[in-house]
Amino acid sequence: MKHRKITYIAQGVAAILLVIASGMKFIGHEHSIAIFEALEMEPNGRYIIAIIELGAAILLLSSYAGVGSVLAVGVMFGAVIAHLTKLGLVVNDDGGLLVGMLLVVFVCAGYVMVSRRREIPMVGGSQR
C-alpha cells in the first residue's frame, strides 16, 4: 500500500515537471532556444521533445502510467546525453537547476517504471 502511495506521488511530481519543461519549449523561452541551438536541433527538435514530454506527462497521470514512465525515462536519457556531451552541467548560469530537475524527473519516472513494470506492454505482460 505504501509503495502504491509513493508511486502515485512520483507520477505526480514527474508529470508536473514534465509539463513545465514542455511548456517552456512550446512558448519558445530564450533558454530553451539557446539549448536547442547548441544542439543544432532548433526549432524542430524543440517541438518534438516538447510533444514527447507532454505525452509522457499525460500518460503518467492516466491508467497508462507504465508507458508514460518509459517515455519520460527515455527523454531524460536523451537530456543526460545532451548535458554530458554538449551542454555541460551549468546551463545559462542556472547553477545546475536544470540538471537537478532532470535528475528528479529521472528518479521519479524510473521508480514508476520499476513499480509498474508489469503494466508495460510486450515487456511486462507476456511473462506473467
Binding site: M41, G45, V75, F77
Partner: peptide, 21 residues
C-alpha cells in the same frame, strides 16, 4: 548511434536512447 549522434547530428540520439534502454 552514440557516435553518430555526437559527430553527425544530435537527432541520432533518439536511437541511442532506444538502444540504451
Amino acid at each position: 548511434s552514440g557516435m553518430t549522434g555526437y559527430f553527425v547530428s544530435f537527432y541520432f540520439h533518439f536511437l541511442t536512447v532506444f538502444f540504451m534502454m
